[in-house]
């Protein structure tokens, strides 16, 4: 049977996602029902896709960074900065294209800053990006002057967060388009291979002619850009820039999504599709917990417990155990078969 490689490679993630979605359907019987409300698709499944947008976008950039054996802790803070920039530009009367361009530019600059610290100054990524993680919310606070900067009267920017196109919420369309673009760029060119090479051994790849500085700068810049898009969506969603809370702790969810997706924190082989599925797994979990109606004290415990189970199932030890189990069964099968042959 011809199973596409992508499905075969991502079987664990697919199974986990299916199990969690099935659990959600048990908890909330209407989970899979989708209807049209105000000319847009409406239902819990759409919520998962929509609410998952920020983490999905962050996970795309994070995957590439982690593949180079790096990490980007600043993405949540960059979301806050970019949200603040977008809100202050649109409320100062700039047009939507100018606002979006300004916001993305700021995200790009944040990414390049991280990239420069890592690629040019050789500072360890976890420390290099920690700087912006800590300083970023302060910068965002300065831009918003400590208030939630609202733009209730700017439908064009609000549309990015809560509008819909072809009946799908805008954030869903944005992340799907960016994901497809990212996958095409890294997999239809040698770029993905070069990123993996740097992650496995930066020195060796530099010696064999890979321009590792430029590629490192580029992956952090892409991570900054993805965070910028997520920041604009998060601000547009609530019609305001909340410097204190926008993107708070989302860098952790993004890293988790990448790990659940099967990319190792040690760099090297990566899978964008895996990370997207990781992000969807996390969001299905979040939505499921909210639908379940448990007291809020249990939210984090349940989430941690389920994630622990997922990571145990995916751990190298249990993978080896599974492989051994399968191999044993096959040998048993082969033996029985040969015995049957002999009997004939």
């Amino acid at each position: 049977m011809a199973v596409p490689t992508i499905v075969r490679e991502r079987t664990p993630q697919l199974i986990v996602l299916a199990v969690i979605l099935a659990l959600n359907a048990v908890i909330s019987p209407g989970f899979f029902s989708i209807e049209i409300q105000n000319d847009r698709l409406y239902g819990s499944l759409i919520d998962v896709l929509n609410r998952g947008a920020p983490v999905t976008l962050l996970a795309i950039g994070m995957t590439l960074v982690i593949a180079t054996k790096g990490i980007d802790l600043s993405v949540g803070a960059v979301m806050a900065i970019v949200g603040a920039v977008a809100a202050s530009l649109i409320t100062s009367g700039y047009s939507l294209p100018a606002t979006l361009a300004g916001a993305l530019f700021v995200g790009l600059v944040c990414g390049l800053w991280n990239g420069a610290l890592v690629a040019l100054l050789d500072i360890q990524p976890i420390i290099a990006t920690l700087i912006l993680m800590v300083a970023g919310r302060g910068i965002a606070q300065l831009i918003t002057e400590g208030v939630i900067l609202t733009f209730n009267d700017k439908p064009e920017l609000i549309f990015v967060g809560s509008g819909s196109f072809l009946s799908l919420p805008m954030p869903v369309i944005i992340w799907i388009v960016i994901a497809i673009l990212a996958i095409l760029v890294v997999r239809r060119s040698a770029l993905g291979l070069l990123i993996e090479a740097i992650g496995i051994n930066r020195r060796a790849s530099t010696l064999s002619g890979v321009n590792s500085r430029v590629i490192l700068l580029a992956v952090y810049a892409v991570s900054g850009l993805c965070a910028a898009v997520a920041g604009v969506i998060a601000a547009a969603d609530i019609k305001g820039a909340d410097a204190n809370n926008a993107g708070l702790w989302l860098e952790m969810d993004a890293i988790l999504a990448v790990v659940i997706g099967g990319t190792s924190l040690l760099g090297g082989r990566f899978s964008l599709v895996g990370s997207l599925m990781g992000a969807m797994i996390i969001q299905s979990l979040n939505t499921g917990i909210l639908l379940a109606g448990f007291p809020p004290e249990f939210n984090l415990i349940i989430k941690a417990a389920i994630i622990l189970i997922i990571l145990i199932v995916q751990s190298p030890a249990s993978q080896t155990a599974m492989a051994n189990f399968r191999a044993n069964r096959q040998t048993v099968a082969v033996k029985t078969e040969s015995r049957e042959h002999a009997a004939r």
Binding site: G43, S44, R51, I148, I238, D242, N245, G293, P295, P296
Partner: peptide, 26 residues
Amino acid sequence: IRSQTGDFTRTKGKEVAESFLKAENG
């Protein structure tokens, strides 16, 4: 009938309210 934390923020308030609406017959 339902009580859940929204962490005092707009984003979480919106997300949790969405789940309330879904869980309580739209």
